[in-house]
């Protein structure tokens, strides 16, 4: 157990990579949008979709972190299990920190009349509906889901190399196309939309939380047989 903690501390030393980069990207898009918001005037509320940048960056972190630290840690006599547990634990910590930060920024945005320019960067319709705690949950699940999807990809790469990643992408692409084809063929798009339409963000993201442990299990299963 204490070597899992060592892995967590290793990631903490790498916090610039984990938190600095996503934070910086979000900061830049925020400032850019703020300037735009200032210039377009405050007659209308200004909605941006740029918040997705930090979510994408967390997904990218999930893809990159194994390449950055797995060979390093395994080379320094760490078990694959400890690497996995420590990395997953740190991903949870980062997601909690980011979700809390977004929650606070949403509150500030509401209180400051959209940073003085009626900009909606953090507080978005549907996504931000509900209590602060439900927003926290939505953000948290969003981060974790994207991180672990990225981490599965990285684990496939560690275990099966470039060919593995290409094969997985091909399989997903074919499955996606086939699904689209079926929906079109049986004329079920409407039914699908009807299913999603009434869902609140909390409901939808609660569904999205379910596969996270599955992604984690797949990652571990792959890393267990990976070589440094």
């Amino acid at each position: 157990m204490n070597r899992t903690a060592s892995v967590v501390r290793m990631h903490w030393r790498n916090r610039v990579f984990w938190m600095g980069l996503p934070g910086m990207i979000m900061g830049i898009t925020f400032v850019v949008n703020l300037i735009i918001g200032y210039f377009i005037g405050q007659d209308e509320p200004y909605y941006t979709g740029a918040l997705c940048s930090i979510f994408i960056m967390v997904g990218v972190t999930g893809v990159m972190i194994a390449a950055q630290t797995f060979p390093f840690a395994i080379g320094f006599s760490i078990r694959r299990l400890d690497f996995f547990l420590g990395t997953a634990a740190f991903a949870v910590l980062v997601s909690v920190a980011f979700a809390a930060a977004l929650d606070i920024l949403t509150y500030v945005e509401q209180q400051s009349n959209g940073w003085g320019v009626r900009m909606h960067y953090f507080h978005l319709p549907w996504l931000s509906d509900g209590w602060a705690i439900s927003r926290f949950w939505v953000f948290l699940v969003g981060f974790l889901h994207l991180f672990f999807v990225g981490f599965v990809y990285a684990s496939v790469y560690r275990r099966f190399g470039r060919l593995g990643v290409l094969s997985l992408s091909a399989v997903l692409f074919v499955a996606g196309s086939f699904g689209t084809f079926l929906l079109t063929y049986y004329d079920q798009w409407g039914a699908l939309l009807d299913f999603f339409k009434p869902l609140t963000s909390v409901e939808l993201f609660s569904w999205a939380a379910i596969p996270i442990p599955l992604y984690a299990a797949i990652s571990y299963g792959l890393l267990r047989k990976s070589v440094a």
Binding site: N14, V16, F17, Q68, T69, P71, F72, G75, F76, S77
Partner: peptide, 12 residues
Amino acid sequence: CFIKESQKYPDT
């Protein structure tokens, strides 16, 4: 402890 020439380190 295994020290090898190809040991990788995190970029940061």
